[in-house]
Structures are given as C-alpha cells and as structure tokens.
Design a binder for these strands. Structure first.
Length: 805
DNA sequence: ATCCTGATTTTTTTT
DNA sequence: AAATCAGGAT
C-alpha cells in the first residue's frame, strides 16, 4: 500500500473515520455485513469504501455496482464518491435495484421473449391491468379490489413464485381465484411486451438463472457489489444478489421446493464480494415484501462474512438517542446495538397535546415561526407524519401563514391525467402491443371511439393474436364495427403511424411471445432518435390533444396545458443529456417510470413535509412528528394486523432523524375521512422515559398562542383563519353539534350571497393560495381561479378554507 | 357516446 | 374533503 500512487489520498480518506468505520472501508475481498445504527455514518462508509476500492486498484469504476433504495440516494451517493475521488464515476453503476434490472433487461430482453422496447408499468398501470384480468375471470369487483388482488400477485412475484407455482400451492378458494387472475395477468403482460415493477426483479433473476453466460458476464463485470438499506430487500433482490456474487442457499426460507420449480444455483463459484449495509431496527417496508431475515441471516448465508457494527451516532443528542433506544427496546428480537453520542445530552423532547388537527398544525407552524425568528433556517426543519393524508391540514396552515414549504412524495407530477396521457402516447408509439396505453389514449381527446368500439378492437386483436396496433390499423377488418367507428379509428391510426415514422421507431415484427429466442435481436437499431421533446410536441399537436384542451376554455385546461409544457421542457433537458444514438424514447420512458420522486427537489429555504417512510436516510436539526395518536401512528391497520413492531421501527426511524430538537404532537380530535374522530395518544409516547420529555401541564397551552407570531399579515390571516371558520361559526353551537350534511342550512346560505363573496374579489385559500372569485353559484358555491396552478375550482364558501384577502 | 349526478370509497407506507 | 365510480338521462 505504501507504493500506491494514491497514498496521500488514501491517508486522507481514512483519516477521520472511527475504528469500525475504517474496518468496514478497508475490508478487502469477500462478504461484509455492516450493521449501521441510525446516524452512524453508513452512507459515508459506503462512499468511502467505493473510493477505497478504486484507490487501491481493487476495482475500476466500471466494476462497481452500488445499489441504493431510491433514485435520490443514488444521486447523492454518486456525488459523494465523485467528491472523494475528485473526478467522475463513468461506468459505475450507482442506482436502485429496479433501475439496474431495467438496464440489464434492456440489453437482454430478447432472451426472455421481450423486445428491448418493453414497457414498464407503474403501480397504476398494473392495477388497471389487474382489473381487466379480474373482470375476465368474472370476479366481483365489489368484494375484491384490483389493488388488493394486485398486492397478492405482487407479493408472490417478489418471492419469485410464478403463476404456475402459485397455482400448485393454493390453499383456499381465494387463492384459487388469485391464481386464475395471476395466469391471465401474466399472459397479458407478456403479450403486451410489458413488465411491472416486480417483473424487473423477477425477470432479471430468471435471466441469470437461465443463461449461465449472461450470469458470468455480469458477475465478471461487477467485481464488487455494495447494497445500502439491506434490511429492506425482498426475496427477489436477495436472490439477485446471490446470483451476481455467487454463493447462496435454498430458494426461499419456509418455502419447500415445488415439483417443477427451477433448480437453485448454489455453487460457491462467484467472487462473493458483497458488502451490505443496514439496520434491522429500521426495517419498515415489509408491506413491500421486504424480508428482515435477509439481514438477520446474512452471517448464516456467508459464514465467513466479516461483521462490523457501527454504534457511534454523529447526528443526534443523547436525549434523542435515549428516547429512540428506549422505544425500540420494546421490540423483541433484533440485533443488539448500543447507540451512543458525544454530542451531549441536549434539550428534552417536546411533547404537546392539542385540541384538534388544526390546533396541532397551528402549534407546529407557530413553533417553526418562533425558531425561524431565533435564526433557524427553513431548510433545517422537517415535519413528518404517518400518512400522506395528514399533510393537508399542515399545508393549509403553512400556506395561510405564508411560509415556504415543500412536500416530498404525495401526489406526483407524473400521475396527473394529462401527463399520463402524453406518456401513454409515447409508450404506444414505441410498443404497439401496449394495450393499457392504447386504451388510455384512443379516445382522449374524444374522437368518437367509445367502450363498445374499443372492446371489439381488443377482442379482434386477441382472437387473431396480433397487437392492438395492428388490429386498429385495419379497422375495416374488425367484425361488427360501424362505419363511423371505422372512420374514426382510421383517422386516429393515420396520425399514430405518422408519429411513429417521425419517432423513427421500428416495431419489431412478430409477437414477443412464448419461445425464448436465444440470440435474436443482436441487430442494433441504429436510428438516431428524434429528440423526445420534439416528438412530444408533435404528438400533442397532431393528436389534437392540446387543441381539445384549448377548446375547453377553462382555467383548469389552461393549467393542464402548462403542465404539458413543463413535461416537454423536462424532456428537452433529458434530450440534452441523452447519449447520441441511444434509443431516446425508450430511455426516456424508462427514466420517468423509475424516477418517482422526480420533483423531489430539496431547494434551499423550504420547510420540508413528508411521510416517515420518505424520511428514511435523512436528517434535520429540527424534526416534528405530528399525529402521534393510536390509530394514526401506529396506524390502525397495523394494530389490527399485528404490525406493531414495524410501526415501532418506523417511530424509531422518525425520532432518529432529529439532530437537536424533536417535537412530538398529537391531537385529541382529528378529522378522518371528513368525520371527527377522537384518539388516544400514541402508545409509543408512553415508551419514552418521562425524564426525557418536556411536557407542560395541559392547561398551560391554549389555542391562540400564535397571535403576534411572525409577520403581521401572516399572523393576521391566521387568526381569521381556519379555526374561526371551522369551529366558531355557529354562534354558541360547538362543532360537535353540527350535522355532517345539512342541506337545509346550505340552502339558506344562498341568501347570504355565498357567504358574502363577490365576483372579482381577491381571496386566499389555505391549500391553493391566492385566487379570484370568477363565479357565484347557487347553494353557497363560489368559483375561484387560483393563481398558483391556474386551476379553477368550485368551493363551498361555507366550508372551504377560503377567505377574503 | 357523452354528460351529469349521486353514491361510494379512500388512508398506510413506495420502487 | 376529495376522488372515483356506477347508473341514468340526454
């Protein structure tokens, strides 16, 4: 090592690591398990380890596969490594499991009977397809929702149980039904040349099991494999890693090999250079089939594995750590860790009870305001909650007090209808068998192709074994279609063909069905690839999509057009960084399919709101956890279904996000599904030793604390705000006396002139921001156009959180 | 085929 | 409270 030209760098690299960290970083070949407590610097260790491997010539950049849990984490990891190396990381694979699999499958898809343009279906698409399959089986959609059914199928797939194996082990009528649907679902997916998220993993495993030379190639390519958040890997991911590094074990714990099941590769032939990092106490994704045993049993899988424990925490004060330790101690099992910190005791944890969800939000916002006045910055503050639904009231309150915030996760840009439509068009151009996309766009905008026509086309395609595209391209051949339908379809397909030619996409001939085509498709498709942005623009124009929106002449439609412009803009950025000659459209589609947290900008100067799950891996000087009530957190379903330990781990994750200040709040009364519910404080609060808590006697707190806080305008809007609108309106009548729906009253209000709003008046809405009244309708409804997103909405003046500005 | 209205559902958490 | 869905009217 002394002769290493990077000796200086190396020294520097190892300098400020503690002993176990250094041991993990400098571990040479062979399996390595890093048990990293919260805040113990695991990401840092991973990044340093990668840099170490390169500096010591144990690996080239292109020989490293580093798996992270989210795209965001991947980006950060790459950045860190680049900073350590002082140069780029060309050729290094730093990405999620799903992205890595998609990349491998693009190159090898032909072997599995797919074309390389296969479509990736997101959750919503997959559910749609599930619904179709369930309908085909004749399932009562009332009793079994597509979501529930798809969950079953997804669970099976992530345990590498295919439709045939599933059928062999059915043990109930319900499972038999699922087996029927699973069959059809799989058949259709394959016919459509599409994969769902689970397939990306499952098919990659298939590929590596089926083709030794492929497996060897990737095994040679990736000399070192590193995995972050190992405690949240599922069985398919576990298996994939075994295949990539060699080594391994029985197919699935507690799952007996079925007759006909593929033999498991078990030879200790690979390099076994697998380094995993995780914390069993932070395993919070079992609902996604994550199997905590993967980390618990790592040392059994690799008896010679080196195990390193990171227990010094560099993030939080001792008070916060003690609370976290005390809570997690209520879980049984797990690997013992003793987190400790040198940062001192710190202040106690603030625990507050509020009357209702609005009071809770006002407390949180007021406290944030106070901290800001003391010199904190918005970017240092995060508000966490169990479910996305809890963000609404917080958002309303933040908006009302004019405080800049961002929400991570939640409703995403790519889930908006107009965006999904545009994407579906692209997808159909690339993949003519994509029925889900075809169904979505064929009559959007309206062109007189309704359900009946669609059903006939689909049935025709099905019976002839051709793609929807082919069936629709010859409408006169579809039996039972009227002249109007034939004409409409003809016009639609003319447009689509023209667009496809522009895209320069060749549709692979023949069905990508059944028979695995060993070395088919090595011919390179060398079309240059039109800029995706241009294609999108052309598509939106030629299909009449934008025109139809313009014709609506509503502000809402205008907003949609703006969203589409944003999409085109994003595509243009993609084009700018896309490799020349790449199959741009397919690459673009893949990127947006896998980058769900695309709008996860962590702009400076914003208070951050997100679910506890989304907070994993992050840290903030100030953390609020709202909604600490039984039923909310722990979630009622977790209580019912015995998921308490995982909820507790989630609480542990939340607590350990905090560096200096931690606030836990709960409300006595909260609106759930619009109805008021009363909950008890979370049981997890009771698990925190009281000497760590700062909990004022209840009487000390009153709702109006906020008066006078912050900028005058903000505070003013506040006072006049929701509390008043919601609880004080019926004079003398407390909220509890209000009937849920009182139409008579609503009628009377009309006389009030929609609660006093006038046309053209400037108003502010708690969630949507500034707007102007563009219409007054009977029954107290006002129409407001909002400046923020350009939308126009109808609001109940009485109930909506809207007031004059 | 499309539009409207009332009923029903939604809330875990995400690649 | 908001979104989706089904059924019925046009």
């Amino acid at each position: 090592m002394a002769a290493n030209p990077h000796a200086e760098h190396l020294k520097e690299l190892l300098e400020d690591l503690n002993e176990p960290q250094r041991e993990a970083v400098t571990h040479g070949e062979g399996p390595l398990l890093i048990l990293a407590g919260a805040g113990s610097g695991k990401t840092r260790v991973l990044a340093h380890r990668i840099a170490f491997l390169i500096y010591t010539d144990q690996a080239q950049a292109g020989e490293i596969l580093a798996i992270t849990f989210t795209n965001k984490a991947a980006g950060e990891m790459r950045e860190r490594v680049e900073r350590l190396l002082g140069h780029g990381t060309r050729g290094m694979w730093v990405m999620t499991f799903h992205a890595a699999c998609a990349r491998i499958l693009r190159a090898e898809a032909q072997r599995l009977g797919y074309t390389r343009q296969f479509t990736i279906y997101d959750q919503a698409d997959a559910r749609r397809l599930t619904k179709r399959s369930a309908d085909a089986v004749g399932v009562d959609p009332k009793r079994f929702t597509p979501a529930a059914i798809h969950n079953q199928i997804s669970a099976a797939k992530s345990r590498l149980i295919d439709a045939a194996s599933y059928r062999q082990q059915v043990g109930s009528q319900f499972e038999e039904m699922i087996a029927d649907i699973y069959d059809i679902y799989e058949r259709d997916l394959h016919r459509m040349n599409a994969m769902d998220f689970d397939d990306l993993l499952f098919r990659t495993v298939n590929l590596l099991e089926l083709y030794e030379e492929v497996r060897d190639r990737y095994r040679d390519t990736f000399r070192h494999v590193l995995v972050d958040e190992y405690q949240d890997t599922n069985h398919a991911q576990y298996r994939l890693l075994q295949l990539l590094v060699g080594g391994g074990r029985a197919p699935l714990r507690g799952h007996e090999a079925q007759p006909g099941e593929r033999p498991t590769y078990a030879g200790p032939v690979g390099h076994r250079n697998l380094a995993v990092v995780g914390d069993d106490a932070q395993s919070i994704y079992s609902f996604r089939q994550a199997d905590i045993r993967n980390i618990l049993d790592f040392a059994d899988d690799f008896p010679d594995a080196r195990v390193v424990k990171l227990e010094q925490n560099y993030r939080s004060t001792q008070a916060i750590l003690s609370a976290a330790n005390a809570v997690i101690a209520n879980n049984r099992g797990g690997i013992a860790k003793h987190l400790w910190s040198e940062l001192g005791e710190g202040e106690r944890i603030h625990l507050r009870v509020l009357d209702d969800d609005y009071a809770e939000a006002r407390y949180v916002v007021g406290e944030i305001q106070r901290l800001l006045d003391e010199g904190a910055s918005r970017a240092e503050i995060a508000v966490l909650y169990r479910t996305n639904a809890l963000s609404r009231v917080l958002e309303e309150t933040l908006t009302r007090s004019e405080m800049a915030y961002q929400v991570i996760g939640g409703t995403k840009f790519y889930e908006r209808a107009e965006i999904k439509d545009a994407i579906a068009y692209l997808s159909l151009l690339v993949n003519p068998a994509d029925v889900v996309s075809f169904t979505r766009v064929v009559n959007s905008p309206r062109r007189g192709i309704g359900q009946t026509t669609l059903a006939k086309v689909l049935a025709n395609a099905d019976s002839l074994g051709i793609t929807v595209w082919e069936a629709a391209a010859q409408p006169e051949r579809v039996p039972g279609l009227g002249a109007a339908a034939v004409k409409a379809l003809g016009r639609f397909m003319d447009t689509m063909v023209a667009l496809r030619d522009m895209a320069g996409v060749e549709h692979d001939r023949g069905e990508p069905l059944e028979g695995v085509a060993p070395d088919a498709g090595q011919r390179e498709r060398a079309h240059a690839g039109v800029p995706v942005a241009d294609l999108l623009e052309a598509l939106l124009a030629q299909t009449g999509y934008v025109e139809a929106l313009e014709a609506e002449r509503t502000i809402e439609a205008q907003g949609r057009i703006e969203n589409l412009e944003q999409l085109v803009e994003g595509a243009r950025e993609f084009d700018a960084r896309a490799d020349a000659g790449q199959d741009t459209v397919a690459a673009y589609l893949q990127e947006i399919a896998l980058v769900a947290d695309a709008d996860t900008r962590s702009d400076e100067g914003l208070v951050t709101l997100m679910t506890l799950h989304n907070a994993k891996g992050l840290e903030y000087p100030v953390v609020f956890i709202a909604g600490c009530e039984d039923g909310v957190f722990p979630h009622s379903r977790a209580i019912e279904e015995g998921g308490l330990e995982e909820e507790r781990r989630l609480f542990y994750v939340g607590v350990t996000r905090a560096m200096h200040k931690l606030y836990l709040t709960h409300a006595r009364r909260r609106a759930v599904f619009g109805a008021q519910t009363y909950g008890m404080r979370s049981r997890f609060l009771e698990e925190i030793p009281s000497e760590l808590l700062d909990e004022p006697p209840e009487a000390a707190f009153r709702g109006g604390t906020l008066a006078g806080a912050g900028a005058g305008a903000g505070a003013g809007a506040y006072g006049a705000g929701l509390a008043a609108a919601r609880w004080e309106r019926p004079p003398g009548g407390a909220a509890r006396s209000r009937a849920p729906r009182d139409r008579g009253q609503a009628g009377e209000r009309t006389g009030n002139g929609a609660a006093g709003f006038r046309l053209g008046e400037d108003v502010v809405h708690a969630a949507f921001g500034d707007g102007v009244v563009t219409g007054i309708e009977p029954d107290g409804v006002i129409v407001v156009r909002f400046a923020g997103d350009g939308s126009e909405r109808k609001l109940m003046a009485e109930y909506a959180p809207v007031s004059r500005r």
